[in-house]
């Protein structure tokens, strides 16, 4: 099977000549969980946001699910075709506050996939019960805890039956006691064979669930290793330094 994500020499610079992405090449295989780690400002978020066209890039090739993206995102339709097949979960949940939980989840299936409301709602309820929050269907986002909101966001991303899920620091905005409920949901998705790219600082999750760790610094890929090698015997000095720093916390 061809890779789900294939990035070759991606480069992006912000103004003042700072490189957000510096010659990044990476591929994600079907069913793989790629964990992206690195200090803040290393380009992790920028990288995964190029995968669904939220971020443009300056040069290089990017191919998502067999569709190649042009760097300036000029082809709206092409990007929407990718977005229909790639789900994204954000650090700040980004639920729609004026819509109920059920409406949050059914909006895209109804508007994008032209599903009937009844079918979309039924599917949404199944997803919510998989996330353990079916009883909140009629509530509004502000009535839910952070962990519950993030699980709604995962259900919303799943509602389009995506072939790839992108997670941008999904637990960074949560209270510590709420982190595990979200990680557990992600773990279950991984065991079901979902292809995932996860930006996170959660070492235990990366060890247990990650198939490969991608370590970035200053826009460059420093190393790509299996968790065993990365956490016990990282190849690069920079990686070891980073691991020591986050272990101290």
């Amino acid at each position: 099977m061809p890779p789900i994500v294939k990035a070759t020499n991606l480069t992006k610079s912000y103004s003042k000549g700072i490189l957000a992405l510096d010659n990044v090449s990476i591929s994600v295989e079907p069913g793989e969980v790629l964990v992206v780690m690195g200090p803040s400002g290393s380009g992790k978020s920028t990288l995964i946001r190029t995968f669904n066209g939220l971020e443009t890039f300056d040069s290089g090739q990017l191919n998502i699910l067999g569709i190649s993206l042009d760097c300036q995102n000029n082809e709206e339709r092409k990007i929407r075709r990718i977005r229909k097949r790639v789900g994204m979960v954000f650090q700040q949940f980004n639920l729609f506050p004026h819509l109920s939980i059920l409406e949050n989840i059914t909006l895209a299936p109804i508007k994008v996939q032209k599903k009937k409301r009844d079918d979309a709602e039924q599917n949404a309820l199944i997803l919510l019960s998989q996330m353990g929050i079916a009883s909140h269907a009629k509530k509004y986002p502000s009535q839910l805890s952070g962990g519950e909101q993030q699980r709604v966001a995962i259900a919303r991303a799943l509602a389009l039956k995506p072939e790839l899920l992108l997670f941008d620091e999904p637990t960074s905005a949560l209270d510590p006691e709420r982190v595990n409920e979200v990680l557990d949901a992600m773990r279950r998705l991984a065991t079901q064979g979902m292809s995932m790219v996860v930006v996170t600082h959660e070492i235990n999750f990366a060890k247990e669930v990650g198939d490969r760790i991608l370590f970035m610094d200053s826009g460059k890929v420093i190393e790509t290793s299996t968790p065993d090698i990365f956490f016990l015997n990282a190849k690069h000095e920079r990686s070891r330094k980073f691991l020591n720093q986050i272990k101290k916390k």
């Binding site: 669904n52 066209g53 939220l54 929407r80 075709r81 977005r83 229909k84 790639v86 789900g87 994204m88 954000f90 700040q92 980004n94 639920l95 729609f96 506050p97 004026h98 909006l107 895209a108 508007k111 994008v112 919303r156 991303a157 389009l160």
Partner: peptide
């Protein structure tokens, strides 16, 4: 919030639909 734009765009909604359904009500 800018996150609302990213959120509806990442779901494959058109800007016009998102504007009408998500942004303007807020």
């Amino acid at each position: 919030d800018k996150g609302q734009w990213e959120s509806f765009r990442s779901l494959g909604l058109k800007d016009s639909t998102g504007l009408y359904k998500i942004i303007i009500p807020q």
